[in-house]
Structures are given as C-alpha cells and as structure tokens.
Design a protein around this nucleic acid. Structure first.
Lengths: 338, 338
DNA sequence: GACAAAAATACAAACGATTGCACATAAATA
DNA sequence: TATTTATGTGCAATCGTTTGTATTTTTGTC
C-alpha cells in the first residue's frame, strides 16, 4: 500500500535513482532503450511522481494560486474555467481561494499560497482592499503576480481588465438612444478601477448627448441586490429619473424589484441596464439588458501571462478585453403617449 | 530576495534548525524563553514555512483535493464555501478541479491530485462516471476519499448526500395537493443516485395519491435547459399532462420557456417544480418552486468527515442532509373554471 | 559539593526527487 | 595498439523540514 518511488523502480531495474529520474524526464543522457524500460516499469508499478519532492528540489512548484472575491459569480467562475483551460494542459494545478470581498481573508489567502510555495498568484482584489503590502510582498518575493478585473495599477506585472469604459458608454448611450433623459448610475466604490472606469464611460455618453453631467445622479456603493432595491425606492421619491445604469446585475435586480413593487411602467417609461450579464439577466421578465464580459477570455489571457511570467517574461502591461452589450427588454424604447 | 528558512533563523540566533522547528511548533521540549525569541525573530525576518518541505518530511500534506462537475453551479459553489469554512481554519487548503461532467477530465484530475500528494479527495462524480478504478486507486493508496451528492455506493468512505427522496416526494406531493393530476417527471440518468432517488420520491407521492404510477411519464436524461424545452414541447403534443416535476432547475427553466412559448396558462393550469433552487428560481416570473439543498451544510459535513478521516477515523457511512421545499408561484393551486 | 533527574538543546538521518560531476564502457581516431 | 571522444550510468549533495537519539546544561536533593 506504500507509494512507489523512483528508488523502488531503480532497485527493481538494478540501476540508480538518477537514471530513473532522467529517463522519466526523457533526458538524452540516458539511452532510448533504458528510457523505454524505465517508463514501462513505472507504468506497471503505478508510479506517480511526488510533486512536493520535485518542487522542493527544483525550487519551483506547478501550483498556481488563484484568489477571487467569490467563486459563485458567473464572471469569476468563467474566469476560473478559462484559466484552467490553459494552465491544466501546461501541467499546472490551481489552488483556489475566496476572499469573500474581505481584505483580511485576502491577506490570509495570500500568505497561505506563499507558504504553499505556489509558482505564481492570479488575483482579483476584494472590494475592501485598500492596502497592498501583502501583494507587494508577493512581488518582492519574486513570485509572479497577475491581476485581473479589479486591479491595483501600482503593482508591477500584467493586468487583464475588461473594457469597462466602453461597456458603460455603450450601456448609457443605448439608454439615451432609447429615449431616456434622466439616467442615474448606481456604481460601486469609485476608488476601485472597474467602478471608476464605468463612471467614466457613463459620463462620456451623458456628456456627449446632453452636454453636462449631473453628478448627483451618480450614486456610490450600490452593488448588492438589497442596496439596489433600497436606493431606487429612495431615489424615486426625491429625483426625476427615468432610467438607471447599474454597475452590476445584482444591484440592477434590486432596482428591478423596486420598480415592480412600485408598479412603475417598466419597461416603457423606465429603462434599466446592468453589468456582467449574469445568467439570470436573460431569464427575467422583462429580460435585463446588460454588458457581457468574456470571462473565459480574461482567464485564458491571465493564464498565458502567468506562464510567460514563470518562464521569465513578465509583462508589465494592461490588457483590455472587449465587452459586448446585450440588448434586451429592460431598456427598450420609451413609450411616448400623447 | 531569497526566501528565509529555519536555517537562516537558526544561524541568526546561534541555535540549530531543529530547535527552531520545535519552537515554531510550540514543542514543550524547548523553553518558553527560546520559543518566544524564535517566534519574534521569525516574524521579524518574514519567515514563511515551506509547506512542501514540511509535507515531504511528514509524509502528508495540508492540501485537500476537491473535484466538482462545475464550480458555477450554485449548489457546488456553496459546497466549496462550506468546505472552506471548516478546512481553512484547520490549516488546510483546497485544490479545486472541475470535471466538466466528463469522465476523462475526472480521471486526469484525480491523477493530478495524487501527484500533488493531497491529504485527501472530496468529490462529486461527473454524470459520465461509470467506471471507478481511478477512485478505487485513491482508496487503495490510503488517501481518504469523501464523496458527496453524486456518489458511488461501492466505494468505501463517507458519503454526504441530500435527502433526494424526501425532496422529490415533497415537490410531487405539493403539485398533487395543488390539484394537478397528470404529473410528469423530467429526470436525469437514473443510474446516478441523485436521479434514481428523486424518481423514488416522485413515485412514492404519485402512488400514495393515485394508486399507480404511469412509468411513461418519467423521462430520463433531461437536465439541461435545452432538453427541458424540447421535451416539454414534444410531450405536450403527445400526452395529457398538467404539471412537471424536474430533477433540476435548469431543465425546469427549459420547461418554463416552453410553456411561455406555447402561451400555456401557467401557472394556473399547469404546475412546475424544479430542484436545486438556483438563484434565478425566485427571480423568474412566475417564480419557480424548487427544492433547496443546503450546500454549505453538505460542504461542512464533507470537510469534517475529511478531517476525521485524515486523523484516522474513516467513517464508512452515508450522511443525509435535509432539503427544504420552497413553495413559489409556478406550482400554485390549479384554477378551476366551471 | 556530589550526583541523579529533569530540562534544554544539538546531531544527523530521513522524506523523494534533481543534477553537477565523476566514472566506466564503447566507438572512433591517430 | 594507444589515445581521444562520445555515450551511458553512478555518486553524492541538495532542497527545507521533521524527529529519534545523543549530548549538554540546569535544577533539585541529600
């Protein structure tokens, strides 16, 4: 029941462990005949290399750490799939941790990954993350750090982000073209790149159409369903708005619920667009217009950047992945009743 | 930039590495004074233990492998969270892999985890899995194997499953109590425990109410949205049914779409219940009745069983986690029009 | 102050693989 | 035949910890 090692094979074949090691690695220094013999025997004995020993000796592991806010977000689970798609065939395995949007958990996760001597870390920051020593530590330890989606520009290394500006611009422009005039934007914390960029896109579209932007229509820290619901209820009492562009689908759903509760004429008199295109977006009635982010592609690029970095080519660039506007019922043309 | 090891600390403090090792492990054999001194120095030097070296020496790792069909299923991502909740504080990390419902990927994942010398494997089988050598290999290698949800009864070790029979029974009984008489069941592959059990629950409720079961109303291999949609369209042409109990929410959503397309009077003349309570279930209009599975709890139990197994107490039992029926609009009382 | 018992630390061998260097055999050249 | 040059293997150290055993130091007792 004991695990078979390279030494067991060596003994069986009457050669030394070093020959076995080389044979299995297809090293030219051992003859083809021996290589075949060794491989056959390894197979037969059910040998599985001990990657811990190997990594320890080689000083690098084939484990890649990945930290995401939560894995049950459509976008993040797609990214994970994209990363796996590239990394697994290349012989790497993923050590996945969730930060649950908390800085403390993120710091712990980073340390845990470092203790496990991962070959690199792929991360999307938690909303809480406002200090970066834990990540600077990764960089300083010479462990490749690839960031995606929610990134910190001050940290060296590749950053893969969505085209948030264009996405927000398209969403807002579409609402404008549908006839809506007073479009609010429910955003997140604008210090976080993704939300900051979406605000820029929103403003660009508004400015283009109406000349100036009413800053009071931009509301921060509304990314959950509950806050979306509460805010729309509040806002409709105070302001004259006829559409909302939400920086996330969950808050958009909160708005959606609020509108239904208030028996608003929606869609038709009120427009709504989300961001992220969660699976439920198209299932709603009316279906929710949203911005689709290509998570798989983000993941694939992140993985490729990681492999490059491991091989010594660390690109200090930001790669922008295009997004797509999904037009659905929630933002359809305004009903003009004379 | 070099990683600091216990040898570095030892040299700095003028003691041997073994003392450092013991001090950090709070071993009684080293004096309290030395322990404090060592810990302070370790902290100061930014020491992070090399878990690969440690695992190699100890012959066991703190990495736990986890294989799920897909992480973007609400149920599975909840389970992962539940597992993390128990395992992370206990000092273990999760190596997560997806089988994407394919046997080949599952086998590869198992081998990859074994090469990484994980301390144990927590798995839910792919739908394709009909041979079990890869898992028998895990058991034979004395690596704890904890199964959940989709399990193989022939493999030794803990199995954590939902109360599928009761869930299906409740769902079906509710449709009956709502006045529906011809209730079809869209199932999966009945060789898989979860689907087989749901069929049993369905039959039990039907038999209890109507005396006998019309086997032709049980349709297999319908777990995707597309197959749900196609099947309902087909079935409604051929049979007189007024309700469907689906073994999953995705197929239920397919049925949902089909009913809308056909402009069926739904709900009211047609009842529908799903299984799994995906987040979208309550967002639909009409909202979808479903069976809520407590994924977190399943995960917590699986993790606890894993810890027990690692500590030498491998329970060869099946633990059944209760489910909850979520009554919503899609299964509301039938409209009787005289 | 001598001596046993207890406490603290040191020594050294593992864990399983990798790899620079040395060594042997065989083939090629002088 | 002697000598060089490939070619294939073996030797032994190493990666960073852990841990059984040996050794030293401290403490306590008479």
């Amino acid at each position: 029941m004991k695990k078979v090692t390279i030494n067991d094979i060596a003994k069986k074949l009457g050669v030394t462990p070093s020959t076995i090691s080389r044979a299995l690695a297809d090293n030219q220094r051992v003859s083809q005949a021996t290589r075949d013999k060794v491989k056959r025997m390894a197979q037969e004995m059910g040998y599985q290399p001990n990657l811990m020993a190997s990594s320890l000796r080689k000083g690098k592991s084939d484990l890649i750490g990945m930290i995401v806010p939560r894995i049950n977000r459509h976008f993040f689970s797609n990214i994970i799939s994209g990363v796996e798609e590239i990394l697994n065939p290349a012989g790497y395995s993923l050590l996945i941790m969730q930060s649950h949007e908390e800085l403390e958990a993120e710091v712990k996760a980073v340390h845990s990954l470092m203790r496990n001597r991962v070959g690199g870390i792929i991360i999307s920051l938690s909303v809480e993350t406002n200090s970066f020593e834990h990540l600077q530590g990764v960089v300083d330890a010479n462990v490749p750090l690839v960031q995606f989606d929610r990134v910190c520009k001050n940290l060296k290394g590749p950053k893969i982000v969505n085209d948030n500006i264009t996405g927000a611009y398209l969403a807002t422009r579409h609402l404008i073209q549908s006839g809506y005039k007073n479009i609010a934007h429910f955003s997140g914390n604008k210090m976080i790149n993704v939300y900051g960029e979406r605000i820029i896109g929103y403003k660009k579209a508004i400015a283009e159409a109406f000349g100036e932007v009413d800053e009071s229509l931009i509301m921060e820290d509304i990314i959950t369903r509950d806050s979306g619901l509460e805010t729309i209820q509040q806002v409709l009492k105070e302001k004259e708005i006829d559409a909302v562009f939400c920086a996330g689908d969950y808050s958009a759903f909160g708005v959606f619920e609020g509108l239904k509760d208030l028996k608003a004429e929606f869609p038709g008199k009120f427009g709504l667009v989300g961001f992220g295109n969660e699976p439920f977006a198209e299932m709603l009635h009316p279906s929710l217009s949203s911005i689709e982010q290509d998570g798989r592609e983000v993941g694939r690029i992140a993985a490729q950047e990681m492999i490059d970095a491991i091989n010594g080519v660390l690109h200090n660039i930001e790669r922008v992945v295009p997004v797509e506007f999904k037009e659905r019922e929630s933002s359809k043309k305004i009903n003009i009743n004379f």
